[in-house]
Each structure stands twice: as structure tokens, then as C-alpha cells.
Design a protein around this nucleic acid. Structure first.
Lengths: 226, 226
DNA sequence: TTGACAAGTGTAAGTACAACACATATAATT
DNA sequence: AATTATATGTGTTGTACTTACACTTGTCAA
């Protein structure tokens, strides 16, 4: 069906992903530098216009692959942004997703048809950058969503493809949530969330007691229903 | 700007509201009967296509007014629905909102240009109805959102334009959450949520101790940020 | 064998929550 | 005016969960 009513002609949907990682104790988000107008040469989140023949989350994943090369990733719905003037070109609604990536197990494609650079940016520095569109806002709400998700989903799973020890993952929780926890209480808290399970294996470091390896459970209700 | 790329030509945004009320101890949702194709003569939630010149929440409110006559209402973002085939006409993304209405303080307009009927439907009966579009799904997720919202926002405020007593509002919480609470523990719980405040007045019923009147606080962070 | 170090386990104090008893205010009744 | 019925409002106790901190355990290096 062709739309001719000017009241709602030429609308579109952006699917935009805030991809986070933790690198050397710093939370970073993946930004790309745009090669096209609008906002040419500005840093932006990975994302773009949804196609007619794909579901929202599939569109988000396609855009991630196109603009960064990242192939498989779990995405979680974050928020919706729809201010009238958020795009200078035409009316665009943004549906935003959150994901986590292991910086060591992917190679980010720096240049594509639509990008001239790609970088993992310190979340604290991003606050002072002037990103394309309303991507500053989107990152802010996605980071808040991330804080909730790490306490109720397996979103951090991919950071530890070979499992993790509890003291190790504690640092990740602390840097994301911006707090510190008592070592012993954190163990109890994390185990009580029913997200992780013992692998039976132990790490062997130098001169210290070996730590048990854990992994995230594959939970059915962890699937994003939207 | 005119869109010609068939990949994302002719997309649109639905703004759809699940308006709940509690009537004689039953949770009800406002449905309208459609007068136009698609889904002519089917029951549906109030909502429609977003205009280019209005923000999402303003579009939702305009649609509510157009299709039910309800003028002022607080809306809260609920969910996003974007399956490829959710509209038979063209590609439509639905942004869904939740609101609460006092059934006694509004007159629902039964017939409009686009509707032939309007009715407050028992939420339990709605589960077995075959609504237009994916509105069954939307109601389900909106009702879940409502359950969260009554514990952290003033969404129930409009149900009690002249204030409420705690035993009175307890029944509303119980029917929405599908539980019962100990009278005395509920009082403490509700007061600890920091949502309500004493008005200084008391109700006067027959032969019983008068109950204090409370009202919802006007909180700044209660504003919907999306 | 001992020391260093971090992992892992335990324990006591404090806090939040659930179950239940008691006191209070009103109007109808005696 | 005292009594009674009824539902509101406050307190209290026991339990579970959280927080703070002490102790034990397993590895490598000296």
C-alpha cells in the first residue's frame, strides 16, 4: 500500500544498538564514524534504517554486521526515541537495543561503505562527545538498561567464552554498576541470582588458591520477548 | 525527503494505548470497535498512526481523544511490537503506552468517524477475544507493565480524584496484582514506597473508625522520560 | 617446611518482611 | 450515657535476608 497522506508520509524506523564491553576495567561502547550525510564525519552508534522484510531485532543485527562486522550477538530491547526533530532528513523513530561484546573475540571492521572508522570509546568520555542524532541520549538510557540486565540476564555471558571465576566477574559488575562489593557477600549475591553454574573446573594461577570456574546458565526466560 | 528505496518505503508507526480501570473489583481495559479496514468490526485498543508533526506520546494522546473522547491522561511507555506481518496493509511498528482512567469521571464516546462502539472489557475476558492486529499481545505486555508501575509511580492517581484511604486502595492493588495482602503489612509497604502522602482529612463512614485520606505525591522523577 | 596471597567458608550483628495482637474512633443500640 | 459492633490504625514478635568481618584452604615461591 502506498502512503500519500502527508500527515504520515515518509516515516521510518531506526534500529540502533549500544554495544558495550569492559576493557581493562573500563566500560566502553562501540562507535562508528559516519561516511554519509546526515551527520557525516560524526561519531554514532551502530544502526540504521529498518528494512520492510525484517523484524526489529534482525534489522538491528544486520546493521551491526554491516557497520562493524560483528556476526552473532544477543540483543536486549532498551528504549524508544521518537522526538519529531531527532532526524534532520525525515521522521524517524529509533528503537534501541543493548548488547555486550568480548573485545578480544571480535575484529571490528574499521571501514565500510557507510563508515570511515570504528572505535571502542570509554563511556565516560562519550558523555562529553557530540554524537550524531540523539545517540547521546540513547547511550545514556541503554547504559541504565545494562545495569538492570546484568542482574537478571546472561547478557555478560559473551565476555567469558571459556567461563569465569567469581572474583574475576566481580570486577566487571563493579565497574558497570559503579560500586564495590565485599568479596564474600558478592559471591553469595551472584549465586543467589540463579544466573550462573559451576563448571567443575578450576583456574590455576601462580601462588594462589585456584578459583572455581563458572558459566552462565542457558535460561529459557532469558529470551527477549519483544 | 521522499523515500524511494523499496527496502524501507512506506513504513509507519502505530501509537497504541492500553487504558486500564478498576470497576467494582474487576480490572478492565478500554476497547473500541473498528469502523474501517483492516480489521473492520473487530475490537481493538485505542490507537492509530503517528503523525509526522507530533511526538510519540502526543500522538498516543491524540488517538485516545479521537477514538474515545478522553482528554487528559498520563501515559507510560510499555513496549514495542514490530513483527513484519503485524499489519496486513503496510509495515507498521507499534509503540505501546499504558494509562489508567477513572471510569466514573469520563464519558466514553461510543461512535466516532473510525469507531462504532467502545467498551470497558474485563481483562480476563479479553484473553479469549480475537482482537485486531497484535493487540492481544500488546495488552498482555502492558498489563505486566502496569503491575510494575503501580509499585513505583503515581499511575493510579487518577482513580482517586478526591484522595483515597489505604484500605480502599488496597483492593485496587490486590485485584491488579492478583494477590491479597495483610491489611497492616500493606499499609507499611505502601507508605514505604514513598508514593503517597497524608492529606490531613479523614473519611466518615457509618459506625466505623474514620480512615485517613491520602493522595499521590507529585514527583518530578515520575515524568516519563521517553 | 614455611610464607605469601587470594579463594573459599563461616558467623554475628543489623535490617527488612511476614504473621498476628492490641488499641482506637465512630455510629447504632440499649 | 454506657455498650457494642466494626473497621481503622499501631505494636510486637519471629524469621529471612543483608552486611560486616574472622577464619580456613590451596597453590607457588623461597
Amino acid at each position: 500500500m502506498e502512503v500519500n497522506n502527508p500527515l504520515y508520509k515518509n516515516q521510518g524506523i531506526h534500529v540502533i544498538s549500544s554495544l558495550f564491553t569492559v576493557d581493562h576495567g573500563v566500560v566502553k561502547v562501540l562507535l562508528i564514524k559516519r561516511n554519509n550525510e546526515p551527520f557525516k564525519d560524526k561519531w554514532a552508534l551502530v544502526g540504521g534504517a529498518l528494512y520492510n522484510n525484517e523484524d526489529l531485532i534482525d534489522g538491528a543485527k544486520r546493521e551491526i554486521k554491516e557497520k562493524s562486522g560483528i556476526e552473532s550477538i544477543d540483543l536486549y530491547l532498551s528504549s524508544v526515541h521518537g522526538k519529531v526533530d531527532r532526524s534532520p532528513v525525515m521522521r524517524m523513530i529509533a528503537v534501541s537495543y543493548v548488547g555486550v561484546i568480548d573485545i578480544n573475540s571480535v575484529n571490528i571492521v574499521k571501514k565500510t561503505m557507510k563508515t570511515t572508522d570504528a572505535e571502542w570509546m570509554d563511556i565516560n568520555l562519550v558523555k562529553n562527545m557530540d554524537l550524531a542524532y540523539d545517540h547521546n541520549e540513547i547511550i545514556a538510557s541503554s547504559f541504565e538498561e545494562l545495569k538492570k540486565l546484568i542482574l537478571k540476564s546472561s547478557i555478560l555471558d559473551c565476555l567469558f567464552p571459556h567461563g569465569f571465576t567469581i572474583p574475576e566477574i566481580q570486577k566487571v559488575y563493579e565497574v558497570i554498576l559503579g560500586t564495590t562489593y565485599d568479596r564474600r557477600n558478592f559471591r553469595r549475591k551472584l549465586l543467589s541470582l540463579d544466573l550462573i553454574e559451576d563448571t567443575g573446573e578450576s583456574s590455576v594461577f601462580d601462588g594462589k588458591k585456584p578459583a572455581k570456574f563458572y558459566r552462565f546458565k542457558k535460561k529459557i526466560d532469558d529470551i527477549n520477548i519483544f
